[in-house]
Design a protein around this nucleic acid. Structure first.
Lengths: 110, 110
DNA sequence: CGCTAATAGTCTACAATGTAGAACATATCG
DNA sequence: CGATATGTTCTACATTGTAGACTATTAGCG
């Protein structure tokens, strides 16, 4: 029931970032997406560490992309949200919604 | 700009709980509100510690109520959300909204 | 070629938040 | 009084969040 699947605030943002980037979600783009949309700075280390931890928990998965294309270029590591990650996000937003409703219009989730 | 005012997930829930309880927000009721609305268990220690920390940060304030009324009863400590707490909550939900919009219908904040 | 700039990811150390549960306080009721 | 109910404090530790230096890899250019 209470599977200790609580997501931190940053984890929520990262999951949402991956979802919105679709098949182009890797470290750099996820970071850019979060910074431009939320106007909040993030350190690259914080991001990768969070990705790492969420992958260990099975919320997301990653696969190395082939070589590169443009200028600089180390192989990219693309991230995808797993069903359990989607579920955790859904639950997390749902809890927030239940607490906010009636006071703060809150999001319908998924 | 980026005042490191990031709220954790639990902090968001606690702030919302206080807001929704109005003038009857104290430890026990806040806890009950969160548990019944989100179906998530909380330890009493976690709650008070979070309240303590948010008060130190100036997000909320508290005042001791007079004696009691019913059965058992130690003096209650009532909590109120300060303007800065309201603002932090607003910003926090806004960030989430910006990341979710287009994918997850998200809350209009305040 | 060999160097520099550009893009991307790893590692380490530490701060802030989250979680539990026992202990303590205080009042009512029988 | 002692058992019971309500409420808060304290202590110890786990999980998340944050930074920034460091490493890796490739394109462009003299």
């Amino acid at each position: 029931m209470d599977k200790r699947d609580h997501l931190g605030e940053f984890e929520q943002l990262v999951l949402l970032g991956i979802l919105r980037l679709g098949n182009d979600a890797y470290g750099m783009t996820i970071r850019r997406e979060i910074e431009t949309r939320t106007r909040r700075t993030t350190s690259i280390g914080a991001l990768y560490l969070t990705l790492e931890r969420m992958e260990e928990k099975g919320l997301i998965r990653s696969e190395l992309g082939e070589a590169t294309a443009e200028r600089g270029g180390r192989a990219k590591r693309f991230f995808t949200v797993n069903p359990s990650g989607r579920e955790a996000l859904k639950q997390s937003l749902h809890r927030l919604r239940r607490m906010a409703e009636g006071h703060f219009p809150v999001p319908e989730v998924i």
